[in-house]
Measured scan of single mutants.
Amino acid sequence: MGTYKLILNGKTLKGETTTEAVDAATAEKVFKQYANDNGVDGEWTYDDATKTFTVTE
C-alpha cells in the first residue's frame, strides 16, 4: 500500500486529495472517478517519484 496524491486544476474546482492504494493503476481509477464525480475532465499526468497525479482542464 502507498499514499497517492491528486492535484485538481479544474476550471471551477481546484484542490488536492489523497488515497491509499496498492498501486498507481488502482489509485488512478479512484482519482478518475473522483474527478468525474466533481465534473473535472482534462489532461492527466503522473509523477512516479512523488506518486502524484495531476489533472488540468
Rank of each mutant, 00 (worst) to 15 (best):
M1F: 11
M1V: 11
M1L: 13
M1N: 11
M1Q: 09
G2F: 15
G2V: 15
G2K: 14
G2D: 15
T3M: 12
T3R: 09
T3W: 12
T3P: 05
T3I: 14
Y4A: 01
Y4R: 00
Y4W: 06
Y4P: 01
K5F: 14
K5Y: 15
K5I: 12
K5W: 11
L6A: 03
L6F: 05
L6E: 00
L6T: 01
I7P: 00
I7W: 04
I7M: 06
I7K: 06
L8H: 04
L8I: 15
L8G: 02
L8Q: 02
N9Q: 10
N9T: 08
N9A: 08
N9L: 14
G10K: 04
G10S: 09
G10F: 12
G10Y: 06
G10E: 03
K11Y: 10
K11N: 13
K11L: 12
T12L: 13
T12R: 08
T12H: 14
T12M: 12
L13Q: 08
L13T: 14
L13K: 14
L13N: 09
L13E: 07
L13M: 14
K14W: 10
K14L: 07
K14S: 12
K14I: 09
K14H: 10
K14P: 06
K14G: 05
G15I: 15
G15S: 13
G15M: 15
E16Q: 11
E16I: 14
E16R: 07
E16S: 10
E16Y: 14
E16C: 13
T17A: 12
T17H: 14
T18L: 09
T18S: 11
T19P: 01
T19E: 04
T19Y: 12
E20H: 11
E20I: 14
E20M: 13
E20N: 11
E20G: 05
E20W: 13
E20D: 14
A21T: 05
A21R: 03
A21E: 04
A21L: 02
A21G: 04
A21S: 06
A21Y: 03
A21C: 07
V22M: 14
V22E: 13
V22I: 13
D23Y: 03
D23W: 03
D23K: 03
D23V: 02
D23G: 04
D23Q: 03
A24F: 10
A24D: 05
A24H: 09
A24G: 04
A24I: 08
A24E: 06
A25G: 09
A25H: 10
A25S: 07
A25C: 09
A25V: 10
A25K: 11
A25Y: 11
A25T: 10
T26M: 13
A27S: 02
A27N: 00
A27W: 00
A27D: 00
A27I: 01
A27R: 00
E28C: 13
E28P: 00
E28Y: 15
E28L: 15
E28M: 15
E28G: 07
E28A: 12
K29M: 12
K29W: 09
K29V: 11
K29Q: 10
V30G: 04
V30Y: 15
F31V: 02
F31L: 05
F31D: 00
F31W: 02
F31A: 01
F31N: 00
F31E: 00
K32E: 04
K32P: 00
K32S: 04
K32D: 02
Q33K: 15
Q33S: 07
Q33M: 10
Y34M: 06
Y34F: 11
Y34A: 03
Y34D: 02
A35K: 01
A35P: 00
A35V: 09
A35S: 05
A35I: 05
N36W: 15
N36T: 14
N36P: 02
N36R: 15
N36L: 15
N36Y: 15
D37H: 08
D37A: 13
D37M: 13
D37I: 10
N38C: 10
N38H: 15
N38K: 14
N38E: 08
N38P: 01
N38V: 15
N38I: 14
N38G: 04
N38L: 15
G39H: 08
G39I: 03
V40S: 03
V40T: 03
V40K: 02
V40L: 12
V40G: 02
V40Y: 07
D41N: 11
D41L: 14
D41Q: 13
D41Y: 13
D41H: 15
G42E: 01
G42V: 02
G42I: 02
G42T: 02
G42Q: 02
G42C: 02
G42R: 01
E43F: 13
E43L: 13
E43I: 14
W44Q: 01
W44F: 04
W44H: 00
W44A: 01
W44N: 00
W44Y: 02
T45M: 11
T45C: 08
T45S: 13
Y46I: 02
Y46N: 00
Y46D: 00
Y46T: 01
Y46G: 00
Y46K: 01
D47T: 05
D47E: 07
D47Q: 05
D47C: 09
D47P: 00
D47Y: 05
D48L: 10
D48P: 14
D48R: 07
D48V: 12
D48S: 12
D48I: 10
D48H: 09
A49D: 10
A49G: 07
A49M: 13
A49W: 08
A49V: 12
A49T: 14
A49E: 13
T50H: 05
T50M: 08
T50C: 05
T50N: 09
K51H: 12
K51W: 06
K51P: 00
T52Y: 03
T52V: 07
T52A: 04
T52D: 01
T52S: 04
T52M: 04
F53L: 01
F53H: 02
F53A: 00
F53R: 00
T54E: 05
T54L: 06
T54H: 06
T54R: 06
V55E: 01
V55N: 02
V55S: 02
V55R: 01
T56M: 07
T56W: 09
T56Q: 07
E57P: 07
E57N: 05
E57L: 07
